[in-house]
Design a binder for these strands. Structure first.
Length: 496
RNA sequence: GGCGCAUUCGUCUAGUGGCCCAGGACAUGGCCCUCUCACGGCUAAAACAGGGGUUCAAGUCCCCUAUGCGCUACCA
């Protein structure tokens, strides 16, 4: 299963009812990984057979997210291929053709029952605590009855005739041997009265026609697999290998849904996550390589990931761990790439805030960011967090009330310290280097016999409007003499 | 209700009958490093759902119970 096999064909088949969320992203990724490992083909197919829930614009949303994650497909809506079209709504003729063949072979039949009545019957049975199964009323219709009904324009669906008392067997890569008796399966509808196919039918037809060899999808489809195998068997199609992935649950143990906050990939991009971190974390849900390793680059995953070692237990989504992994990737990213990402982040931020009042040239943004990176690389877990650490280098700070009154009840004589700092910084000779800045500032601490952390605290508030800042001397260096002194002056004015 | 699947620290997991009075990672607490915050290092607390078997020996095999999840649609 792991050797190179160019004939491998897998697919990711989302339905366009919303953005790409973390669970589908995982499914897509594992499909992609499998192909990357075996050298086969990755197919994207859009399952848009539910008109009511269909949202056309989400198709684009989903492909954009997939692309951002780097999960490119070989065949699909935008890539074409010899097994298209790759949208189910464009394949209704195919589904109908095959359904008629089933009817001819007495493996399916027309059903004229009204959906409303059937629904009512089912609900009543369930209320009584009984099992409901379609009673095959329409199977007894004579060819003449059927002909009349069709000619009079009566709406009909097509139902699959489920063979009685047959055992269906299949082996799932993750869940092992699954055995189900057809007694628990009713004659399910394959073509709805609106002419569109239902999921269990179209998915089997398409997977067969598109020559899919390995079906990798969420565990919610495990129980439906026997129905699909019935379809394969009815046409003598080859049955693919099945791999069902354990569900991803929200932190409350419930199935992931919109209520759990930011679950779309789009949202994670916005929040400043990087693609390798998301992929790494996703691979770790339900899978591990050994006792110790948690960080896997995408190329390592291609080598090491095995579908067969995925476990069966549903996993709760742990946002904190994703955050940590993201921070890890940022800390270990090469600086030139980080520079690009951060510059983009800051530009977007400045644009969104419509900020024009800059105290430092935004033209040399990237050069400045290059200098800032070593100071903040270890301090951010997402790209977005960098905004608070970078923007004060460029944007005029306005002191918060907290900053203005920060030293009111403290014993330190802030104005005095700042006056000395002003002088000390002004006296830094030559280039304004962190080393010299440090030397001069530490001197103040010695002279006043005051711990340096106290001095630093005062300076931080004055130049950064916060008691927390990147390393002080380097920050002052990058800020530059002029700006630093200006801020100190302004702050002295405020507290004097 | 029926069918299917699952159950090790708060979370993700290691563990395939003796190496486990259960290992790692995130999160949490403490200490160290230190100009703040981080990073890094050290350290602490923290789990085999419950009950029966099988076996010299069970987290690991079997059965039952409990709990959770999925499917049971003219949703996918």
């Amino acid at each position: 299963m792991n050797e190179k096999n160019k004939d491998v064909r897998v697919r990711f088949a989302p339905s366009p009812t919303g953005y790409l969320h973390i669970g589908s992203a995982r499914t897509a990724f594992l499909n992609w990984l499998y192909v990357a490992k075996t050298g086969g083909k990755f197919i994207l197919r859009i399952e848009d057979t539910d008109i009511a829930r269909h949202q056309e614009e989400t198709i684009n949303l989903i492909s954009e997210s997939l692309k951002w994650l780097g999960l490119n497909w070989d065949e699909g809506p935008e890539a074409s291929g010899e097994y298209g079209p790759y949208r189910q709504s464009l394949r209704t003729g195919i589904y109908r053709k095959y359904a008629l063949r089933l009817i001819q072979e007495k493996k399916a039949y027309y059903c004229f029952c009204s959906p409303e009545k059937l629904k009512e019957k089912r609900e009543n049975k369930i209320k009584e605590g009984k099992i409901y199964k379609y009673n095959r009323k329409c199977l007894e219709l004579t060819p003449e009855n059927i002909q009349d009904n069709i000619e009079s324009g009566k709406p009909y669906a097509i139902r699959f005739l489920v063979p009685e008392n047959k055992t269906i067997n299949f082996k799932d890569t993750v869940y092992g041997d699954i055995t189900v008796n057809t007694a628990s399966i009713e004659d399910f509808i394959i073509i709805r009265s609106n002419g569109l196919p239902t999921y269990n039918y179209s998915v089997a037809i398409d997977d067969a026609l598109m020559k899919i060899t390995h079906v990798i999808r969420g565990e919610d489809h495990l129980s439906n697999t026997p129905k699909q195998i019935l379809i394969y068997n009815a046409f003598n199609f080859n049955v693919p290998d099945f791999t069902h992935l354990p569900m991803i649950l929200g932190q409350d143990g419930q199935k992931l849904s919109k209520r759990h906050g930011s679950i779309s990939i789009e949202k994670y991009i916005e929040e400043g996550f990087v693609r390798e971190a998301i992929l790494n974390y996703l691979a770790l849900l339900g899978w591990s390589y050994d006792e110790k390793t948690t960080i896997f680059s995408t190329s390592e995953l291609i080598k090491k990931f095995e579908l067969s070692s995925i476990n069966k237990k549903p996993a709760k989504f742990d946002f904190n761990k994703l955050l940590w992994i993201n921070g890890y990737y940022i800390r270990n990213m090469d600086n030139s790439r980080l520079k690009q990402l951060l510059a983009k982040q800051i530009r977007n931020y400045l644009a969104s805030k419509n900020i024009i009042d800059l105290e430092n040239g935004v033209k040399q943004l990237e050069q400045k960011i290059e200098k800032i990176i070593p100071l903040i690389k270890e301090r951010i877990k997402t790209l977005k967090e960098s905004i608070n650490l970078i923007s004060p280098f460029f944007i005029k700070i306005s002191y918060s009330d907290e900053s203005k009154t920060y030293f009111k009840n403290k014993k330190v004589n802030a104005p005095d310290i700042l006056n000395r700092v002003y002088k000390a910084l002004n006296e830094v000779s030559g280039k304004f280097h962190a080393k010299d800045i440090e030397k001069n500032l530490r001197l103040i601490s010695e002279r006043l016999n005051l711990s340096f952390r106290k001095i630093a605290e005062v300076i931080r508030i004055a130049i950064w409007n916060s008691a927390i800042s990147p390393p002080l001397f380097e920050t002052i260096e990058i800020l530059g003499k002029e700006l630093t002194l200006k801020r100190i002056n302004e702050y002295i004015g405020i507290i004097s």
